[in-house]
């Protein structure tokens, strides 16, 4: 194990949330790879039954079982687990009550179905409980089995309620085993060993939701992690060109000359037409860049570390994941 100086040393549970469409699962997977780099062992947990991890790593659907799915740069293993609430419930019955055989009878009776779909909050407690167990687990010699656990969590709008398990089951159980279990989970989730990271884009709605989510977490006393700004487009143009474009003062004639010099335009009419179309593209880009700058400044107000991940030209495939993992490491997030 190498020791690195990262922004999240000491954090063992990384919860990754984000508005739909921001690439939350991709960032969680890349973060797991980055944390595993250099010979560590990391568990990547999925909880929503969407099999997003399998899709990103190009694997058949994952069972309810911890299995190795990837090798990190410089050695190190990423394991994955798709938590199925019903299976987690049976696990829980066995672990805490020795009720393994009872599980089948309970399933038949519809008890498990009830507990995992209808009972308020119980599903979330089971899922976070299973994750907390993996965080705390030690092997025979007393060493932690996983150096870190990364959870692909519910979207930003639901994250506080999801993690605030004690509160969630309060209506269901003020005392008793469920409450005790929830308190245990809360102990892990609210500790300094946990960080809740947000994935955002440089767009208004995801940025607003990120700030709202961070405020909610603070209020609930849950540990806020970093902001991963995903799908960042490179700024290809010099500032003076962007400024000119915003003011509609791009030098079309110079652009047309350049196009002709590059052999892209037949006559000068042609060059002018292409230059005009390209100039429109530049204006769009300039407006977008300005908007992004504004959103970046808004995110900075959250006062938590921010990391920028590039837009992957070919989409989030396996090679892209390693690229993102590298970017995460280079910026000290792992």
């Amino acid at each position: 194990m190498s020791s690195r100086d990262t922004d999240w040393d000491g954090v063992r549970l990384h919860v990754v949330t984000g508005k739909g469409g921001t690439g939350k699962t991709t960032v969680a997977a890349a973060l797991a790879l980055a944390l595993a780099a250099g010979g560590r062992k990391v568990l990547l947990v999925e909880i929503e039954g969407r099999q997003g991890i399998a899709q990103i790593f190009d694997l058949p659907p994952l069972p309810y079982e911890e299995r190795k799915i990837a090798v990190a740069p410089g050695g190190g293993d990423v394991y994955a687990l798709a938590i199925d609430p019903e299976a987690a419930m049976l696990d829980y019955l066995e672990m805490f009550y020795g009720l393994k055989r009872m599980g089948k009878a309970l399933t038949r009776m519809g008890v498990v179905d009830f507990a995992t779909t209808i009972a308020p909050g119980l599903r979330d407690v089971l899922v976070t409980g299973k994750t907390s167990e993996a965080v705390r687990r030690r092997d025979g010699s007393g060493r932690r089995v996983y150096d870190a656990v990364v959870m692909d969590a519910p979207p930003t709008g639901r994250i506080t309620r999801f993690l605030n398990v004690t509160q969630e089951v309060a209506g269901l159980a003020r005392v008793g085993p469920v409450k005790n279990h929830a308190d245990l989970v809360r102990g892990v989730v609210a500790s300094p060993e946990t960080a809740v990271h947000f994935v955002s884009l440089l767009e208004e709605m995801p940025v607003q939701e990120t700030l709202d989510g961070i405020a909610e977490l603070h209020e609930a006393g849950l540990p806020v992690g970093g902001i991963f700004i995903n799908m960042v487009r490179p700024v290809d143009l010099p500032k003076d060109v962007l400024d000119a474009a915003v003011k509609n003062r791009l030098d079309h004639a110079e652009l047309a000359l350049g196009l002709k010099a590059a052999g892209l335009a037949g006559g000068s009419d042609d060059a002018t037409a292409i230059a005009q179309a390209l100039a429109q593209e530049v204006v769009d880009h300039a407006h977008r860049t300005r908007l992004e700058k504004r959103e970046r400044a808004t995110l900075a107000k959250a006062g938590t570390p921010r990391y920028e991940l590039p837009l992957l030209a070919d989409g989030a495939d396996l090679a892209g994941l390693y690229e993102l993992a590298e970017a995460i490491r280079a910026q000290g997030a792992a």
Binding site: R233, P234, D236, L237, P238, V241, D251, E254, L255, L257, G258, L259, A261, A262, L264, L278, A279, E281, V282, H285, A313
Partner: peptide
């Protein structure tokens, strides 16, 4: 030559 055109063409290629 033509830095502006080169940069704009790069942008266009990305798009």
């Amino acid at each position: 030559e033509h830095d502006l055109a080169a940069a704009v063409l790069r942008l266009h290629a990305g798009r």
